[in-house]
Design a protein around this nucleic acid. Sequence first.
DNA 1: TTATTAAGTGTATTATTTACATTTATAAAT
DNA 2: ATTTATAAATGTAAATAATACACTTAATAA
Lengths: 230, 230
Amino acid sequence: MTISSYQDQSPILVAVDCIIFGFDNEELKILLIKRNFEPEKGKWSLMGGFLKEQETADEAADRVLLSLTGLHDVYMEQVHTYTGPDRDPVERTISITYYALINIEDHNEELTRQHSAQWFSFSEAPELIFDHHQMVTHAINRLRYKTSIQPIGFELLPEKFTMRQLQKLYEAILNETLDKRNFSKKINQLDVLIKLEEKDMSSSKKGSFLFQFDKEKYAAKAKQGFAFRL
Amino acid sequence: MTISSYQDQSPILVAVDCIIFGFDNEELKILLIKRNFEPEKGKWSLMGGFLKEQETADEAADRVLLSLTGLHDVYMEQVHTYTGPDRDPVERTISITYYALINIEDHNEELTRQHSAQWFSFSEAPELIFDHHQMVTHAINRLRYKTSIQPIGFELLPEKFTMRQLQKLYEAILNETLDKRNFSKKINQLDVLIKLEEKDMSSSKKGSFLFQFDKEKYAAKAKQGFAFRL
DNA sequence: TTATTAAGTGTATTATTTACATTTATAAAT
DNA sequence: ATTTATAAATGTAAATAATACACTTAATAA
């Protein structure tokens, strides 16, 4: 900032809110908490928290996510900052939103229970407090864009996954169905997956081969100007 | 935000900073001001200002831009919020950034002079204070993305423009050269320009036809699901 | 041995992107 | 009047990418 010098400013609270995405092999999910304090006690909302002294918003978002899921080093991205003067009825609060991608199996169920948190199908999420619905909409749009140009979708999957899981994931994110042959062709020609010997036998008699995302190979290719595009 | 209730928070100032883009028919430009107060007095920086009571960040950005250029109703988009606790050495200040697209001929020169503002070629901009360089980089990336999926480039041009101007604009934004025939073919098949009878005679003996962006036609097509893609 | 189930795979068609050079309209100079 | 100079205007062929579409295979269970 630059003009008008450092004059008085009425106090503004700064918070972060997290849109936490997960994937259950069929649908995109979102983790919401039931507010246990006023205002809007009992209603569903995003998980958030205030910025601490000497803490960046990125750090605050990490902290909030850790406290709810027990997870460290989660993929997060800042989305947008909401500044409506009356968006929070108690005190003027601006909220910086982040979306997080987690492997749904990794989260600490005990912690989520403590916070009265619950996973919802993205398409069947309940009404949310304040402007949280708008935040979610913005986040999913950003996620759609980002997954189409960067290999961040893998963050939502277990280490080893089948081609079918990967396709279902992209279908869930993009909210459209994809052709199986064209999908695997496209993925394979990106040449950033390792096909394992191992099969997942749970989904069919034949079983399906498991894959891993090859981070190192991708990083090397990205350095050479390779563009991940799906 | 949601958890941890409304406890004390150390005071944080909230500012907006504007990355103001213009186009001079050859290069992409950016409007910077020379700081006339401490800290970093005399250095180049983005134009910014603090959020007022009862004002959204969008409104603050509009106000800042108006005060510098005299322009209303300018295309602006929020980009990112910077929250490093020591990013501003005086007081803890978070900054919400916006980029603005203006027709370079429209701005009020008297106002920009009062603020010691100056246009710089995007590629030859001076060193900036604090984290402003990072803000500019983030903004140009967002602009590149946004211009490729929405017809916002026209905001940088006069009402009537030649095909060459439009191409130069996209070349400047994308920082790559484009083929003239392929470019005009692509633009024409989007079918959102009005070709005028009128010619611009300043650039050649032959003169070149002027075009206008057909906002209504675009809006109607967009409603039908038409995607502007360049 | 047979039946069942999802996994795995290829090709032809269409659409899009790219590369590339000549002609044309006008103003200025002679 | 004619010539010259300059950027504007224009089309096609080749390469690449995207799409539509159906049968075979591996393994388990009956």
